[in-house]
Amino acid sequence: MSVGSLLSAADIGMIRGERLLFREVSLSLAPGEAIVLRGPNGAGKTTLLRILAGLTQAETGTIDRNAPHHWVAHRDGLKPHETPREHLTLWARAWGQSQTDIEPLLDEMGLSRPSDVPAKHLSAGQRRRTALARLRLENRPVWLLDEPLTALDADGKTLLLDMIAAHRAEGGGMIAAIHGDAEFEIDMQVDI
């Protein structure tokens, strides 16, 4: 495993039912880097990302996680009754970051207007912004993002790209499964 890598995976293979999704996937994420997972629908991008996060058990291979990670997937993790403010307060507490001030964060994420609207009444873009706001509740070097750009409007995309740039500038790394154009600088592409 390379020295100073935030997260590295070697020879990951996965079988679902009897179907081989992928095999011998290896990657290593260094500080400041961005890795993009690409492949057609159903190829297993999300599964690979879940394996890297430790949610799914791989059939073969080893993973070294040398730094804590954030997880944002297409299921946003919001409860239907939860407002963006409640959601962020809850996770700040759960992660032991209860001193974090939620108000400026809501403002910067463009969520100050719907901050007290339950998630079931929010648009998909607003829910996604709330989920992405979790990335800033606590400073974690690794970001694992599944299709982070979907559902976001132009402003939202700019916001996320700025967040990614700032995160990488501070020495953070990210691994993202992305279907369309990446719109940010890529250090490595993993095709599966």
Binding site: A53, W71, D76, G77, K79
Partner: peptide
Amino acid sequence: ADAEDGSLDLWLQT
């Protein structure tokens, strides 16, 4: 409900 809305993923990573 947790499995469907994605919060299960978050709880398992605490």
